[in-house]
Design a protein around this nucleic acid. Structure first.
Lengths: 150, 150
DNA sequence: CTCAATGCAAATCATTTGCACACCC
DNA sequence: GGGTGTGCAAATGATTTGCATTGAG
């Protein structure tokens, strides 16, 4: 905790914690220990995860939260953009931490279920065009390509 | 059935029916009346629909098919590209007929739930780039923009 | 005739909900 | 203290599954 080498990590975790804290205050939601424990667990985890994985991981660390609380808290974290949610197929909701990670989209290789992340600036161009053509304001998108290795 | 003015419609329906018929033969699946009744109902319908709507619509026309059969048949129609499936949120699967309709993507206006369809060739460009960069073959994509009227 | 397809009802499974209790503000 | 947040268990609702029956090939 007090080591120099951990500074970056702790700083990042602290920053994220503050964002959540500010968000909760602004929305007049309570700052419960469960909510921050969940945030920590998510930011310690790399890659995509589902609710069940999060539930099991926390239980193994002897921090018990109910699934109901997990679902509730994910809503809050999505709302303040600390987490992104992906719909990989019918009943597969996966999440990932979102703070300061580059905006990216996904390619799903269906034979292996491998997921590739990519960034393409042309998507922003399409977005701008649509906003002008239809006179609307776009605040998010979801883009998936499905394919396979050659 | 025999009227000149219906030629276009009947031709289109016939063509679609043949595609499905050929597909079923190739895959050694049986040509049941239920399957063609479902295909007809879908191609008579304009816009997006869910399984329940399809079920109710057919029941009202006194053609009873079980939900199980609807789900099974949708799989076949998806497989032979006569139908497209959209995942508008967690538990909202919507379908639409696909034959000879232009490939398009969707903008969802979240205040009104209005859906705008659009085509943008740049998506094909992105697709090509990804295929080259990652040495993969992409066979489909799903793209949604979420926003609101200004 | 035979086996795939159908209908029905029960099973599944992620997510939501109702309610009693706990604890943040 | 009061009311939001939590945990638990039951409810929900779309989809799937098991099984007896039907009918396409």
């Amino acid at each position: 905790m007090e080591l120099e080498s951990l500074d970056q990590i702790s700083n990042s975790q602290t920053k994220v914690k503050n964002i959540f804290s500010d968000y909760l205050k602004e929305k007049s939601h309570r700052k419960t220990p469960e909510r921050f424990a969940i945030l920590n667990e998510i930011y310690d985890y790399n890659g995509h995860f589902d609710i069940e994985t999060l539930y099991v991981n926390m239980k193994e660390k002897n921090y018990r939260v109910s699934r109901a609380t997990l679902y509730n808290t994910m809503e809050l974290l999505l709302d303040c953009n600390l987490v992104r949610k992906h719909q990989f197929g019918q009943n597969i909701s996966l999440f990932e931490k979102a703070h300061e990670s580059r905006q990216h989209d996904h390619i799903i290789l269906q034979d292996t279920n491998e997921v590739i992340e990519f960034c393409d600036p042309r998507i922003q161009n399409i977005k701008s065009t649509l906003e002008n053509v239809f006179d609307i304001e776009i605040d998010s998108h979801s883009l998936y390509f499905y394919g396979k290795r050659k």
